[in-house]
Design a binder for these strands. Structure first.
Lengths: 153, 153
DNA sequence: AAGATTACCACAATATAATGTAGTTTTTTT
DNA sequence: AAAAAAACTACATTATATTGTGGTAATCTT
């Protein structure tokens, strides 16, 4: 565990206690180089995933809602429903693997866009234009040009 | 560490590895009752605090901004600047103590309101009426009545 | 579709963490 | 302002985690 003060990688545990609910372990560690102390927490890898919406409200992660948006973006595009499911799989898993209990809908959008971009660029632009307003028109045009260029090939 | 499947409090560590950057330890644990396995992560207690704003964008926690809003809500109220600083202290500390790297501005508002409510109820209502729209008019009127009743005493 | 990275698994040898008891300080609640 | 709860401290005893090696499978990148 890297010391937060001096970045030294070695330390020792000075105290270790379970929380009353046994849902975490608090350890008090001491850096072997600078002797300073710090606290760490051990947690179970989070399973429940809460989404923070734009208005700041939370709600449980609902895969179906996202699927719906993606399906719409992929209308009339050569992407199978299977393909979409697999994109969702990847996104969901990589969200679950994060250590963070909470995700913003914006982060989810970004992840999907990254995936979608490598699968179908037209669908990507459709999705992107809904989920994220391009920072400026220039960026949007640049994306479009790149895609048109490739489609022509 | 409580088993996420059967809630049994005893388990053993089956594998334990540092992340390459030494900023966390991943442990693979096995429940002593149901034998199922799960993963835990140990992290340094978080120090940097990111605020998720209503529009979904992040920014570093800025105490001054919050102070400004609070000061305005407390205009002409018998609350010293010192008092306000101490409210902010409490809120900031309790945010830092959470295990969560990120907080929504909504959560911060709630914390401040809780504190403010016990200090000055009129200021509380002013602040609340800005930071949170009361779910319904009834709730707002109820708050007002309670406060007026107390003021009369 | 191949290559790289990361999670997961097993086993054995060594070193370090967990736990009880207990006192102090800090923080939160009433 | 006092009481209650939580975090940090120390020390001694016991028990368990860490680390290397090495292999498989799943996932991410190109």
């Amino acid at each position: 565990m890297k010391c937060p003060y001096c970045s030294h990688p070695e330390d020792k545990v000075v105290d270790s206690r379970s929380s009353r609910e046994n849902d975490s372990i608090r350890r008090r560690r001491e850096c072997l180089r600078c002797q300073r102390r710090f606290t760490t927490y051990e947690h179970i890898e989070e399973i429940p995933l809460m989404v923070i919406k734009k208005n700041g409200q939370r709600q449980p992660f609902d895969r179906n809602k996202i699927t719906a948006g993606l399906l719409k973006a992929c209308e009339k595009r050569p992407i199978s429903a299977q393909r979409i499911e697999s994109i969702l799989d990847t996104v969901e898993k990589s969200l679950l693997r994060r250590h963070n209990k909470e995700v913003t809908s914006w982060q989810i959008g970004e992840l999907i866009m990254k995936k979608l971009h490598s699968v179908d660029q037209v669908a990507y632009v459709r999705f992107a234009s809904v989920y994220r307003e391009f920072k400026d028109v220039g960026e949007f045009m640049k994306e479009l040009k790149d895609i048109v260029k490739k489609e022509r090939k």
